[in-house]
Simulated assay, not measured.
Amino acid sequence: MHFRLLGPVELRTTDRWHPVAAAKQRHLLALLLLNRCRTVPVPVLIEELWPVDPPATARALVRNYVMRLRRLLGDDGATVITYRAPGYCLELPPGLSDAELFRAGLAAGRRALGEGDAATAVVRLRETLSLWRGTALADLPGEGMVGVARRELAARREAGDDLLIDARLAIEPASLVPELRALAADSPREYRWGQLMRALWLSGAPAEALGCYGRLRATMAQRYGAEPSPYLRELRDRIRAGERERLTTGVR
Rank of each mutant, 00 (worst) to 15 (best):
L5T: 15
Y224V: 01
L90K: 06
A167N: 03
A218I: 05
D237V: 03
D117Q: 06
P8M: 04
R246C: 04
W50R: 03
M67E: 12
A30Q: 01
A174E: 14
L235Y: 12
W132N: 03
F102W: 06
D117W: 07
E179H: 10
T79Y: 12
R246G: 03
T219Y: 13
D166Q: 11
R236D: 04
G194N: 09
D75P: 05
V9L: 11
M145R: 07
L200S: 11
A112D: 12
V148G: 00
E190W: 07
I81M: 09
L216I: 03
R110E: 15
W50I: 02
A78Y: 06
E127W: 10
R126C: 08
R70T: 12
L153A: 02
V40Y: 02
A78I: 03
L113K: 13
D166S: 13
A199I: 08
Y191M: 09
P54K: 05
L33E: 00
A21H: 15
D98I: 12
E234H: 14
T135R: 01
T249L: 00
A207C: 02
A108Y: 08
R84F: 06
I239N: 08
P51T: 10
A107N: 14
R246S: 13
L183N: 03
K24G: 02
L183C: 06
G147P: 00
A149H: 02
A60K: 14
L28D: 10
F3M: 07
G7Q: 08
A226I: 12
V62T: 14
A184L: 09
G74K: 08
G250W: 07
R240S: 14
M220D: 09
E91M: 09
R103Q: 11
I46P: 00
P173D: 10
R246Y: 11
L72P: 02
M220R: 11
E158R: 15
E234F: 10
D186Y: 02
V177E: 05
L92N: 13
R252A: 07
R223D: 09
P43A: 01
L106I: 07
W132I: 09
I239Y: 09
A138S: 06
L202Y: 14
W132S: 05
R181C: 00
D15F: 09
R59D: 11
A85P: 02
R192P: 06
D162H: 14
L113S: 10
A23P: 11
A85C: 07
Y83S: 10
L6D: 08
P228R: 10
Y83H: 15
P228D: 05
D139T: 04
P228E: 09
I165E: 15
R36H: 04
A104I: 04
T219D: 15
A218H: 04
L232R: 04
G242D: 04
L210A: 08
V42L: 11
R59A: 05
L6R: 04
E91G: 03
I239G: 09
L73H: 15
N64V: 03
Q25H: 11
D161C: 10
S97G: 08
G194L: 10
L96I: 11
E152T: 05
P173S: 14
C89V: 12
A23I: 03
R133Y: 05
R217T: 13
L180V: 13
R84D: 07
P173K: 12
P178T: 05
E227P: 02
R252K: 13
W132E: 08
P141E: 07
L113D: 12
L153T: 05
T249F: 03
R217E: 14
L72F: 06
